[in-house]
Amino acid sequence: MMNLTLKIWRQADAKSQGKMETFKVTEISEHMSFLEMLDVLNEQLINEGKDPVAFDHDCREGICGACSLYINGQPHGPDRAITTCQLHMRTFKDGDTIYIEPWRAKAFPVIKDLVVDRTAFDRIMQSGGYVSVNTSGNTIDANAIPIPKEDADNAFDAATCIGCGACVAACKNASAMLFVSAKVSQLALLPQGKVERQDRVLNMVEQMDKEGFGNCTNTGACSIECPKEISLENIARLNREYLMASLTK
């Protein structure tokens, strides 16, 4: 059982000024997940008649990408290859002080407390993160085009991105390159996506720039902090795809 000091960013809404506030929680089991620890805090706040801390979360099994906390100076906390909901309290020690902050980026404005607006990612996807195929019972048979296993596996690895935004949060420039590159790579690697690859990469990068994300300076922080360990090779592929597209289109 642990007793902890929490320093949490509180902000009433997008327009208000926020600040760090200090809370204490006691008797935290090391088997709890980080979010369950926050549940304990919120239960405590509600019982005291106070406003609970707002944070995004949903599936609590590391796949929906909703949870998004900057914990002790790192997105999704100190552990690697996991999301906040998979972070367990056994990572911390009795008496620790834990800083909990929202993702910080101009493109991700705070909605309340630790909740940020990540619809910029949706808009990037809308600008080209798809294959333009209508629903039809008559597309070609799924096995008509064999896809080399390596390409399929690499496409899958890129496609595992959960859109949580940890890459943006970790990047000192709040760049969204890893997110964009994951989708561009997935579709550039598959024959189905190759038809539109040039328009896709141009449009997605244009939208990314419009949203106000910073520029990639190849620090590699995004990939290290990515819960799905999306590789920097994807960013290189994006750079390549974009260069070819802008030279020829």
Partner: peptide, 27 residues
């Protein structure tokens, strides 16, 4: 680039352990 990148994060983190994910020179 440096100015734009600064603008992309108007509010800084109170606690930031960038050294755990990138080398000093790159930042």
């Amino acid at each position: 680039l440096t100015r734009e990148n600064k603008k992309a994060r108007p509010v800084n983190y109170a606690s930031n352990k960038a050294e755990r994910n990138s080398i000093w020179a790159s930042r």
